[in-house]
């Protein structure tokens, strides 16, 4: 081998071995610091860190994905100081906040049937709906919630919680943050055109998703200075609803997509659950929705942790 070639080879080897080829990557270095700082962050006393608010969007059965999201946030040790929700987001938020174990919540959502929601989902009720234009009652759902949480009031919840409903007479947003939990939850998910409005203090209340699909503003007003918005993403993708319920839910989703644009801007962090392929009324897909929620939240978790650590950097690295 010519001398010059050997020399070049030696120079190359010298340069190559001079570098630490086993060095951790920049991404791995970030992960080491993140894991370390996150542990410090979650150990901080409440007064030394950002007040974290979580808001859960509407989305009918797609909103079951919120259970998966809450599972991931809870397992990560995320401190939550305030919560809000609309429609399905209100149901999940209320039950989680009332202390129902997430596994039980999964079981409930996977096994829910129409009898838990209304006594009118039968031939008589459907005939009345079609010919006497009488909407279904959602009173059973209120009883169902009471049975699960034990007639709790908003004031009894460990995390301050609010959910949103709409007055069909005035179009006003009605906020529930005190009084019986089940009433607010029922009013928040009371789909207009399907369920009869809930009569409450001269108001006729329907699903809150039509006025505030993802109530970021509620947790902000409660005092949160770091807001995590959880959005059960719809997907229109040129598909046509297959029934009346599908059309009603689609209208809600379309309106929701417009409303959430503003809510997303107000939030500090948005978790998008990619559940668009799941129909809003498909009871058989709730388990899948929960898993998609968990997986979406887990993917978003590193970035979320980083942003929270940055918000409390002075306390983490004193």
């Amino acid at each position: 081998m010519p001398y010059r070639l050997i020399k070049l080879l030696l120079i190359f080897l010298f340069c190559f071995l001079g570098q630490n080829i086993f060095a951790v990557t920049a991404k791995e270095e970030d992960a080491i610091l993140r894991d370390f700082a996150w542990q410090k962050f979650i150990e901080l006393p409440k007064q030394e860190r950002s007040k974290v608010g979580v808001t859960l969007s509407a989305g009918a059965l797609r909103g079951a994905s919120h259970i998966g999201v809450m599972e991931v946030l809870s397992e990560a040790g995320l401190p939550i100081d305030y919560m809000s929700g609309a429609s399905m987001g209100c149901i999940v938020g209320a039950l989680y906040n009332a202390g129902l174990p997430l596994e039980h919540l999964q079981h409930l959502v996977n096994n829910i049937n129409t009898n838990h929601i209304s006594k009118d989902f039968n031939i008589g009720g459907i005939l009345r709906y079609l010919f006497a234009e009488k909407l279904f009652s959602s009173a059973e759902f209120q009883e169902f919630i009471d049975k699960e949480v034990g007639s709790k009031n908003y004031e009894d919840l460990p995390i301050p919680f609010a959910c949103v409903s709409a007055d069909i007479k005035t179009g006003e947003k009605v906020i529930f943050d005190s009084g019986p939990l089940s009433l607010g939850v029922r009013a928040s998910m009371n789909l207009p055109g399907i369920f009869e409005p809930v009569e409450y203090r001269q108001r006729l209340l329907v699903d809150g998703g039509i006025v505030d699909y993802m109530p970021v503003d509620l947790v902000k007003k409660m005092g949160a200075d770091f807001i995590i918005a959880v959005y059960a993403l719809p997907s229109f993708a040129g598909t046509k609803p297959s029934n009346v319920m599908g059309y009603v839910l689609r209208i809600g989703d379309l309106r929701g997509a417009v409303l959430t644009e503003n809510s997303e801007r107000q939030a500090d962090f948005v978790i998008l659950s990619r559940v668009g392929e799941i129909s809003s009324s498909d009871l058989s897909k709730t388990n899948l929705a929960i898993e998609i929620g968990a997986s979406s939240a887990y993917q978003a978790l590193p970035k979320l942790k980083e942003q929270l650590i940055i918000s409390g950097v002075n306390y983490v690295f004193q």
Binding site: A26, E29, D30, L33, A37, E306, I309, V313, F317
Partner: peptide, 16 residues
């Protein structure tokens, strides 16, 4: 010249 998490933390410490 990068946008790492480490850099963001360092910047925040300097800022504060």
């Amino acid at each position: 010249n990068n946008d790492s998490f480490i850099k963001q933390i360092a910047e925040q410490i300097i800022k504060n």
